[in-house]
Computed example of a mutant assay.
Amino acid sequence: MPDKLSGLVVVDKPEGVTSAGVVARVKKIFGARKVGHTGTLDPFATGVLVCCLNRATRLSRFLLKGDKSYAAELLLGAETDTQDATGQVLCRRPLGHVTAQRVHAMARRFVGEIEQVPPVYSALKHQGTPLYKLARKGVAVEKPARPVRIDRLEILSVDLPVVRFAVSCSAGTYVRTLCADMGRALGCGGHLLRLRRTASCGFTLDDAMGLEALEACRVQGRLEETVIPMVAALPRMPAMAADAVLARKIGNGMKLAGTDFPVPPPVENGAFKVVDPHGRLIAVLDATPPDSYNYCCVLSS
């Protein structure tokens, strides 16, 4: 498989594999020069992991900001140091006062803009070192609370001590921290028991393939069919069509003026993608009023 093949591969990540491990496997399957993912999943978690191949890695920073959706299970009555089932239990509390009605009422309080303290076992860095590495050495570094957005938090079932729920949220939201906060709000504590990402950056489990299925496609010579082209990689970003003259100008990285676009871009201030006459994604630009366009990335070479 030539390393010129560029685009997205949506993987259904299996349990027990790191996101970096998935990237390494995808790189080997495709024989790709560069592969990156667009949002880490913990080893115990499964589901949608969007991987970028070759030139599409230039789009990673836009995809990293994409919203995510999850199906999760919360185990009430026990807090762990990692806020999930892989950690050590710190304390246990009875559930005598917890009811399904209280669980539903509690969940409604977390919808919208909330403040969330990142877990000490996370990939965020402190002075260049990931927090989880410091935590494993007994040095727990707590980052300040930061705003995240919960668009939907639906309780699917309450079978105490397990609560199943679905959540749609902004990038940067920690579902295990959400579980710990929900348990705390109920007065009994809790931690994340299971997690499956159902959507990321506009792609869902319907778009995803397992690693073994990708390997089978490689053997059958059908790998190209599994790659989402770059023009479809940013489904929620506005697009502009460029004629041949403008496409050459962009390909050469020349300065752009408002007159280069006969019709104003569909955003007043923000990123938009540019497609050439052949329907290929050639660049992502940033519109800055008045009539100023900056290059975010050029993909035509």
Score class of each variant (00 low, 15 high):
Asn252Phe: 09
Leu192Trp: 02
Pro238Tyr: 13
Val103Asn: 10
Ser168Trp: 02
Ala105Arg: 13
Ala185Met: 08
Phe30Val: 02
Cys51Tyr: 09
Gly138His: 07
Gly31Thr: 14
Gly77Gln: 11
Leu90Lys: 08
Ala239Lys: 14
Val219Ser: 02
Asp181Cys: 10
Val139Ile: 14
Glu224Gln: 00
Arg164Lys: 14
Cys296Gly: 06
Val103Leu: 06
Lys133Asn: 05
Ser300Asp: 12
Val139Cys: 04
Asp207Met: 13
His104Val: 04
Leu64Thr: 04
Gly270Tyr: 06
Ala283Ile: 12
Asp81Trp: 01
Thr38Val: 03
Gly210Tyr: 00
Ala239Pro: 04
Asp260Ser: 11
Ala239Phe: 10
Cys91Ile: 01
Pro264Asp: 12
Leu124Cys: 15
Leu63Tyr: 06
His104Met: 00
Gly279Arg: 12
Val89Trp: 03
Asp207Leu: 13
Asp207Ala: 09
Asp42Tyr: 13
Gln88Gly: 11
Phe110Lys: 05
Arg194Val: 07
Glu225Met: 02
Asp42Lys: 15
Leu193Thr: 00
Thr82His: 04
Lys34Met: 02
Thr18Trp: 05
Lys143Arg: 13
Thr86Gly: 02
Lys273Val: 03
Arg184Thr: 11
Leu8Val: 10
Cys169Asn: 13
Pro43Asp: 04
Val48Phe: 05
Gly190Lys: 06
Val17Pro: 03
Pro94Asp: 11
Cys201Gly: 09
Arg92Asp: 07
Asp84Val: 10
Ala239Arg: 14
Thr38Gln: 05
Met182Thr: 04
Ser6Ala: 15
Gly183Asp: 01
Gln88Ile: 10
Asn252Gly: 09
Val231Arg: 11
Gln220Arg: 12
Val23Gln: 15
Glu268Lys: 12
Gly258Lys: 08
Ala271Asn: 10
Leu234Lys: 10
Pro119Ala: 01
Glu212His: 15
Gly279Tyr: 13
Lys65Ser: 10
Pro118Phe: 14
Glu115Arg: 14
Thr226Ser: 11
Tyr121His: 04
Ala78Asp: 01
Gly190Ile: 05
Ala199His: 09
Gln101Trp: 02
Leu59His: 03
Pro161Met: 09
Val103Thr: 06
Leu131Ala: 12
Ala45Lys: 04
Ser157Glu: 15
Ile114Gln: 03
Arg58His: 10
Glu225Thr: 01
Pro118Ser: 13
Leu49Gln: 08
Leu178Gly: 05
Gln116Ile: 00
Gly183Val: 00
